[in-house]
C-alpha cells in the first residue's frame, strides 16, 4: 500500500482540530494536577493523622489504578449519582485528579528536600506558620520541582489519547474515525504518531534544559 499524499493533506485539518481537544484536555488537566497535588502534599503534612492517612491512601489508590477504569468511573458512575458531565469535562477532571497524585509526591519530595536549617531559622525568627510556608519553604520547594512537574505535562499529553474510551474526539479518536470512514488507517494514524513525537520530543528536551539550569543553582 502506497502512502497517499492527497489523502494525508485532506485529513490534516481534521487532525489539527482533534489536536486542539488534546491540548485543551492536557492543559486544563495540568492546571488541576499542579494545584490539587499541592493540596494533597500539604494535607499529608497536617498534624491530623486521620486526614493525613486518608489522603495518603486515596492518592496511592488513584496512582496505582489505570486511567481507563477511572475514566469509566467518572463518566458513567457520577451521572448515576446525579452528577452529569460532558465527556471532555470528565476527561479533563480524571486526567487532572490522576496526575495530581503524582505531583503530590513531587511536591512532598521537594518540601522534604528543603534543608532543616531553613525551618529552624524560620522558627528562630519567630515567623508565623503561614509565613514559613509562603515565604520560606514553598518558594524553595517549588523551585526545585519545576522541571519534574514539567515532565508530567508531557506525560499527560501522551496519556490524553485514552480519553477516546469515553468518546472525546481528541487527536487519535479523530484519526481513527477518518480511517474507519475511508478504510485507510495508515496515513491518519502515522500522522498522529508523528504529531506526538514532534510535540513531545522537543518538549522533553526543553524540560531537560530546565533541569540542568535549576540543578546548576
Amino acid at each position: 500500500m502506497e502512502w497517499d499524499w492527497q489523502y494525508s493533506s485532506d485529513v490534516l485539518p481534521d487532525l489539527l482540530r482533534g489536536l486542539r481537544y488534546t491540548l485543551t484536555a492536557t492543559l486544563l488537566g495540568y492546571v488541576i494536577a499542579v494545584t490539587l497535588g499541592l493540596v494533597w502534599a500539604l494535607l499529608r503534612r497536617t498534624p491530623n493523622v486521620v486526614v493525613a492517612q486518608a489522603v495518603r491512601w486515596a492518592t496511592e489508590f488513584i496512582r496505582c489504578t489505570p486511567l481507563i477504569p477511572q475514566l469509566f468511573f467518572v463518566y458513567y458512575v457520577l451521572p448515576a449519582w446525579g452528577l452529569t458531565i460532558g465527556s471532555l469535562t470528565a476527561g479533563i477532571i480524571t486526567l487532572g485528579v490522576h496526575y495530581s497524585t503524582y505531583t503530590a509526591e513531587v511536591y512532598r519530595a521537594g518540601i522534604a528536600d528543603v534543608p532543616r536549617g531553613q525551618w529552624e531559622a524560620a522558627t528562630a525568627l519567630n515567623l508565623p506558620r503561614s509565613r514559613v510556608w509562603l515565604d520560606v519553604i514553598l518558594p524553595q520547594a517549588v523551585r526545585r520541582v519545576i522541571p519534574t512537574l514539567g515532565n508530567y505535562l508531557i506525560a499527560m499529553f501522551k496519556d490524553s489519547p485514552l480519553l477516546l474510551v469515553i468518546n472525546v474526539t481528541e487527536l487519535l479518536n479523530t484519526a481513527y474515525r477518518e480511517g474507519a470512514e475511508s478504510l485507510r488507517f495508515l496515513e491518519p494514524i502515522t500522522m498522529v504518531g508523528l504529531l506526538f513525537v514532534l510535540i513531545s520530543v522537543p518538549a522533553s528536551i526543553f524540560v531537560r534544559r530546565l533541569e540542568k539550569r535549576y540543578a546548576a543553582h
Binding site: 500500500m1 501522551k158 496519556d159 490524553s160 489519547p161 485514552l162 477516546l164 487519535l172 484519526a175 481513527y176 480511517g179 485507510r184 488507517f185 495508515l186 494514524i189 502515522t190 498522529v192 504518531g193 506526538f196 513525537v197 513531545s200 520530543v201 522533553s204
Partner: peptide, 24 residues
C-alpha cells in the same frame, strides 16, 4: 529512547494494529 518516550503507547498500539497491516 527519545522516539519511544515521545510516542503515546496507545498511538503505538493503534499503529501496530491498524496501520502496520496495511504496509504488509
Amino acid at each position: 529512547v527519545e522516539f519511544f518516550r515521545g510516542t503515546a503507547t496507545l498511538v503505538l498500539l493503534y499503529w501496530f494494529f491498524y496501520a502496520l497491516p496495511l504496509v504488509g
